[in-house]
Design a protein around this nucleic acid. Sequence first.
DNA 1: AGCCAGGCTACCG
DNA 2: CGGTAGCATGGC
Length: 237
Amino acid sequence: MTPPISDIFSSLLKAHGSRGWWPLRELRRQDPQSGGYHPGDFSLPVSAAQRFEIGVGAILTQNTTWKQVEVCLDGLERAGLLAPEPLLLAPVQVIEKAIRPGGYFRQKARKLCEYSRFFRQWDPEPPPRPELLSVWGIGEETADSILLYAYKQPFFVVDAYTRRLLERLFGEADPRYASLQEKLTKSFLHLEPVRRAQVFNEFHAQVVHQSKTFCRSRPLCRGCPLESVCASAGRLV
DNA sequence: AGCCAGGCTACCG
DNA sequence: CGGTAGCATGGC
């Protein structure tokens, strides 16, 4: 029988250790080994610049890899564009050039401008989710990434990794975002919001790591920490 | 050399 | 509503 979601979280945490999301470039500069991650430290982000960087990263990473996002963040910084005001003043072609390696660079340049305006309006106040969703270019996953990782609000991020992992673990299910999010969060509602946000932060980071190591697009089930509870165990590679 | 990568909007039936 | 074409680059 399927174990409670919280048991899956415990198994992942035990197997992989604390992951330390969201990656921040300042930390990566201080210690390149860290990759910008900060395991066990839920105090971050601590500044408007860091919150903005997380939002920009959340937009840039839409349907691309984090490695490409880092190139784009470097490009923006070199152009002096890693802040709301400069982004709003810059010619769109300059922004596009800086973020080209991330793909969809025309759409994303516009999204960064739309988000800059929104950020200036709300930060440091955590924006209401519907307000965030009304910004052009920000859908449910990007909104929840910003709310959880930039503003420490307890929203679980459902991304492609999460969908794939849940589908493998539980088989076919309701694929709608809200449904998956509810499945993942309902057993944590007794926690205080601050603590719940920390759990969602770590849990989502665990899902991503699990999905990059074992539960990949092409699965590698040997040694998987979830083998004993996975509906697909034995049917995949 | 085609598939995939931490989605979203617009538009279709 | 639910489903999907288009957006674009780079790595494997």
